[in-house]
Design a protein around this nucleic acid. Structure first.
Ligand code: AMP
Ligand code: AMP
Ligand code: ZN
Ligand code: ZN
Lengths: 298, 298
DNA sequence: GAATCATAAC
DNA sequence: GAATCATAAC
């Protein structure tokens, strides 16, 4: 798991091999969503669709500008049976989506807000190179060093944006961040841990790297497989690539195979205190809300 | 459907045949939950558990004071297989529950907050007379005039409490209520409609009369049968009692019989605009959020 | 009634 | 992947 604050961190201006397009950057003026204890009413900035699916909150995922040539909203059930390819429109036409859907795009990457976020912040980093982005992610990241290094570089641009957004929304609840505000010279800013990695057996075709807060507290988290896909070895941190030659995960056990299914169907354990909830999903959800609150207060 | 503002309305002090116990009345000082555009953080008053199930929001339904002789929390899965009798503890020991669970109790009635509210406000009025409160509600209300009249009287106590709570939480969003605030002498206060009645075939043994706002917007509303049970003739308004001798509903068609199941399994139509959503439950939910907002703004 | 689990069809 | 529907077991 790649935590923010690692040694890879460097300045935003040094990162991109091509200038981000106009809508790539989150302007401070866009960050108008007020800090919230619970959820705030209608947010307006690029980090606004963070919690819960648009469907759950009736904050409809903004549609691309309507025109007969536009691709369909990838969220709507309008273009199955090709649902496995539903990330393709973001890769092909990133510019037509509002910043509440596409956070940032460069010639090499598109970063979107997950349409069914499984935690408070949940982004998907999509590599655009069509020669590698439909390979199995374990294979792709193990055998294409340039993909791996450019992905890690892009992550180093994204994590500070996420940190900033978390501090803006929740910093006032954080003991550390409050101490920092009082004594900026002696107390460093809070650094929130992030989980960054892939699923051992993704359902969607196009390579996507999850960037997600660890709280697992979101209305779109609806069953045990959702939870376990981020909290067991089914989740493979980006920092684990390239894998050792004998890493057992190179077999990329998937949900169709015994070893992958075992993770998804196993007992659920709290990410924070380790408590085993067995298959009691509702009880876990309730517990996760409390854990989130305590975690934010750290 | 019994709407507030009907001719039965009269003063609270005239209603009860026995003085409510100490915790029966909502004291204005308890109404500390701030008016909310979305949901407010941790409310404290008797009208606090209104929206969504405790499980959904991690606002745990308060347990009765723990002691070996206390009844179990009716919400917990601790005392099946007798789940059909889960309302009994409220009837037997109303005083042990906090006012966030039991809103009010008299010798004749206990009024609770529905543990899985299907709308913004959802109360259950429970008649306590054991000689009638386990009869089928259609039979009981048709054949026991004193049960019917006392229930209607208790409703006349409860509806002003609900009106007050709705105005407190949402009045600032209401065109009518805002106009009233500006011109109290010429514009009357907003009266929110309430649905008051029973299910044609209840699942729980003890007679309960639903008092519910019409919005059907709540996390605990989870499938089409939930929705249709309040928006089709499966829902029988209290004001329809006593029924005409030839009222077809005297047959009390239930979910086990064709006629009742037909209502629950039929297409879902928006309570406000009539739009038919077929079996598209998620689309309906999204729509209901918007309708609630517009409705509150009236 | 709620909740977990499985199954089509998209 | 999401969503609708059905089914035990409480
Ligand atoms: N149309 C969509 N737009 C954006 N994200 C999506 C869409 N459909 C599914 N997702 C997300 O994509 C991820 C796919 O999961 P996985 O293939 O297991 O890595 C999940 O987190 C989904 O919530
Ligand atoms: N333990 C409980 N405490 C309070 N309300 C409950 C409990 N269990 C179920 N309910 C509610 O009781 C109602 C029973 O529905 P019905 O029998 O169809 O009228 C539903 O609205 C449930 O949400
Ligand atoms: Zn925990
Ligand atoms: Zn409507």
């Amino acid at each position: 798991m790649l935590k923010d604050g690692d040694e890879l961190k460097h300045d935003l201006s040094l990162t991109s091999d091509a200038s981000p397009t106009e809508s790539d950057v989150i302007h401070p003026s866009e960050l108008t969503e007020p800090p919230a204890t619970s959820e705030a009413p209608l947010p307006k900035n690029a980090f606004s669709v963070l919690l819960s699916s648009s469907k759950d909150l009736s904050k409809k995922r903004p549609l691309p500008p309507s025109s007969s040539t536009d691709p369909p909203d990838p969220t709507k059930r309008t273009h199955p049976p090709n649902w496995r390819g539903c990330l393709l429109p973001y890769l092909t036409f990133p510019h037509i989506y509002p910043p509440t859907t596409v956070l940032r795009h460069t010639p090499s990457f598109v970063t979107i807000f997950d349409a069914f976020p499984k935690a408070t912040i949940h982004l998907l980093l999509l590599p655009r190179d069509p020669t590698v982005n439909t390979l199995h992610p374990i294979l792709a990241l193990n055998t294409h060093p340039s993909l791996l290094s450019s992905s890690k570089s892009e992550v180093q641009i994204l994590t500070p944006l996420v940190q900033k957004e978390l501090r803006r929304r929740f910093g006032h609840l954080s003991k550390t961040q409050i101490a920092h505000t009082s004594s900026p010279d002696t107390v460093p800013e809070r650094i929130y841990p992030l989980k960054i990695g892939i699923h051992a057996h993704p359902s969607l075709t196009h390579l996507h790297i999850h960037i997600i807060t660890p709280d697992m507290s979101s209305p779109s988290l609806k069953h045990n497989k959702h939870y376990n896909s981020f909290t067991t070895p089914f989740f493979i941190p980006l920092e684990d690539f390239p894998m050792a030659e004998d890493d057992y995960r190179r077999k990329h056990p998937g949900r169709d195979e015994e070893s992958g299914e075992v993770y998804l169907k196993g007992d659920m354990r709290c990410w924070r205190c380790g408590r085993n909830f067995g298959n009691k999903f509702k009880a876990l959800k309730e517990h996760l809300e409390k854990e989130k609150e305590e975690w934010l207060a750290e």
